[in-house]
């Protein structure tokens, strides 16, 4: 599938990986992909900016939303002392053992892997391309994939930024058609 990606769409995928690695994320999410599309220089980035979703705003929202997945408060509520577990893990495996990205698995070679919904969004971008009878997957198709399923974090980020997702979809579709 990747060989059908345009230069800009590839840049978005590679940019999402770089962004995820920078944030020390364990998985590349639809949010990371959305940020990378917005940070591009093509029509999709222009559509996002026109809708008010600038890379800086998205970046802030993603960083704020990246709460600790170990959720110490919730664990405490069921009687698990995360600090004690962390101490025990560090005593055996070294400082930061529990919080370091998984260094034993695929992470070590490739960095964070794509989360399931991010993979799904990329598959949807291929389907959007086929549906529009276009050959190459543009960054705009990736963006359409990212806003197709409202359960995606990318849709939530846009909604929270005050973006009208339906209007964005129409704008991106028009721009793709004009460019084809």
């Amino acid at each position: 599938m990747f060989e059908r990606f345009s230069r800009d769409a590839r840049a978005a995928v590679v940019g999402a990986q770089a962004f995820g690695r920078e944030l020390r994320a364990r998985r590349i999410t639809t949010g990371h992909l959305l940020y990378a599309v917005a940070a591009g220089e093509d029509d999709a980035a222009a559509a996002l900016r026109a809708a008010g979703a600038t890379p800086i705003r998205l970046r802030d929202a993603i960083e704020r939303g990246a709460a600790d997945p170990l959720d110490p408060e919730a664990l405490r509520a069921i009687g698990v002392d995360l600090a004690a577990v962390r101490d025990a893990a560090e005593a055996e495996f070294g400082p930061g053992a529990l919080d370091a990205p998984d260094a034993s698995g695929p992470y070590r070679l490739r960095g964070p892997v794509f989360a399931d919904d991010a993979k799904k969004a990329l598959e949807l971008s291929l389907r959007q391309t086929l549906k529009a009878r276009q050959k190459r997957i543009e960054a705009g198709h990736v963006l359409l994939g990212l806003i197709q399923d409202e359960r995606f974090a990318s849709v939530r980020l846009l909604t929270e930024a005050g973006v009208d997702v339906a209007a964005l979809r129409a704008d991106v579709t028009t721009r793709l058609r004009a460019a084809a």
Partner: peptide
């Protein structure tokens, strides 16, 4: 939320 955090915790401990 605690169940979700426990799963994440178990995953990380398993990796280690």
């Amino acid at each position: 939320r605690a169940v979700r955090a426990l799963r994440e915790l178990a995953d990380r401990l398993e990796n280690l």
